[in-house]
Simulated scan of single mutants.
Amino acid sequence: MFFASDNSGPVHPQVLAALGAANDGYAMGYGDDPLTKQVQRRIREIFEAPEAAVYLVATGTAANALALATLCQPFETVFCSPVAHIHEDECNAPEFFTGGAKLTLVPGDDKMTPKALAATIARENTRGVHGPQRGPVSITQVTERGAVYTLDELRALTAVARDHELPCHLDGARFANALVRLSCSAADMSWRAGVDALSFGGTKNGLLGVEAVIFFDPDKAWEFELRRKRGGHLFSKGRYLAAQMAAYLADDLWLSSARSANAACARLAEGLRNAGAEFVHPPDANMIFAALPRAAHRRLHEAGAVYHLWDGTLDGADPDELLTARLVCDWSISNAQIDRFLAVLHG
């Protein structure tokens, strides 16, 4: 009953098998191998973007920080949600890799609104040389609270950025989960929606450790290559990153894995709903924020359930106090684990 994070789940067996196959013989280094080139071609096909520049890095933080550094000057600011991963969970990596650009938080919840974004952009660049200049907009899809932007919502945000001649970055650590939720194409949820650069996630969806950075404008390619090398993220044995991504994309494993995670989350959410849980955020994809009584949390933890409490502690005095849990389903979570969790919850 492990619901702590989709980072904690196992690597898909097909990915491990692909790594073993890639380990046969020799290949040129630094991404100059046939497997990396194959992956780049495949991603361009999936995104219907034949001119896109595609690069592989090992972590989501590297993907986000290097992509934003390529889009942002040191004297600019990045506009993002108050709970964006780049703000809360990357130890100032975007600020470091951009050479000092700041983050400007758009007031609101996990989903930015066009009105709030426009107002926040308007407030910046009002002090001339004394203040930060306007820089890229970074959107998270799926959000850090488990919500999915609709295509219309994405387009409305990128339209605000475009009105101010600002580029848009999409943090797609859970891109596949959002895509299967919306039943749209990868192109529809990226460049057709106005996204300029995408962090295309894989680690949270069954990979050992690889993310793709996609620039739909290839003019940014050389600068990204330089920043990746200078930042220490150019792997010499790049074929092992490519092997993972190749297996991920083969036979749509990335989509089937995301569907499994989303379906597990829906099953869990339905059971929680029947148990009277209060949902703090809509469980659109594979992540749930739900409030349960402290006594229920104690019962679940004593039975071996692993997940994070978002507020409060188990050792409080009031057994009926509602505490919010963050529950995340990965591709490998079984119905048996979910049903056992719900059985314990029901007592």
Rank of each mutant, 00 (worst) to 15 (best):
G312W: 04
A122H: 13
E225C: 13
L208F: 07
P74R: 00
D89A: 15
L16H: 11
V54K: 02
N23P: 02
A186D: 03
L66N: 01
N23I: 03
R41S: 15
L35P: 06
N64L: 08
Y30K: 02
F96A: 12
T150G: 02
A291V: 02
T313K: 14
A122G: 09
K204S: 15
S199A: 15
L66K: 00
P107D: 02
L300H: 03
R44A: 10
L56V: 06
P94M: 01
A52P: 03
G201D: 14
A261P: 05
A246R: 03
A17R: 04
I338L: 01
W222V: 14
C80Y: 14
A243R: 03
R326L: 09
H130F: 13
V142I: 13
R174L: 11
A263G: 01
A305D: 08
A266L: 00
K37N: 08
A62F: 14
A291P: 00
A17Y: 03
V213N: 01
A336I: 04
T70E: 00
A52S: 07
W191Y: 10
E321C: 10
S199K: 13
P136H: 06
E88C: 07
I121R: 04
L234I: 05
A295N: 10
G194I: 05
D251A: 12
A65M: 06
W331L: 02
P218G: 00
E165H: 15
D152M: 08
D163L: 07
R340Y: 06
D339T: 09
A263K: 01
F175E: 03
A17M: 04
L103N: 09
V78L: 08
P107G: 01
G108I: 07
S138I: 02
R145A: 06
C80W: 14
N205G: 11
A93E: 12
C265F: 10
T61C: 07
F75V: 10
G232Y: 13
D110H: 14
S183R: 15
G146L: 09
A193V: 07
K111V: 08
D320E: 14
L272S: 06
A247S: 07
M112W: 08
G99Y: 13
A221H: 09
S185Q: 09
V11E: 03
S236P: 13
A247D: 06
L154T: 03
C329R: 04
L234S: 11
S257K: 10
S8D: 15
I139H: 01
E144H: 13
L19H: 12
N335G: 15
A242E: 12
T126F: 05
D318F: 08
N205T: 12
